[in-house]
């Protein structure tokens, strides 16, 4: 079972380990591109990592409109709780 909190914690670990973002810069309101310097290629790697977490297929389209960290958390949360 994934809560929004656990998804957020996992995202923070991806951002720090993979994208070398300063942990202090990450918050729910942070914008991926403008604030955290995460580009479209990084997003592909992020989706791969999120697949590992959820064990579900993720269509990149599901993330088409995400702008902030909060958006990602919500999108993943919806994904793991749909059925």
């Amino acid at each position: 079972m994934h809560t929004k909190e656990s998804i957020y914690a996992y995202l923070v670990s991806i951002f720090v380990d993979l994208f070398e973002v300063e942990a202090s810069a990450i918050c729910l309101e942070a914008r991926l591109y403008e604030d955290l310097d995460i580009d479209s290629i990084d997003a592909v790697d992020m989706v791969i990592k999120l697949k590992e977490l959820t064990g579900k297929k993720i269509q990149p389209e599901a993330f088409k409109n995400v702008r902030t960290v909060q958006n990602v958390v919500e999108a993943v949360y919806e994904l793991v709780n749909e059925d």
């Binding site: 993979l18 994208f19 070398e20 290629i41 990084d42 592909v44 790697d45 992020m46 791969i48």
Partner: peptide
């Protein structure tokens, strides 16, 4: 390493 890290 993943592409994103290598590119950085």
């Amino acid at each position: 390493a993943m592409q994103s890290r290598k590119a950085r």
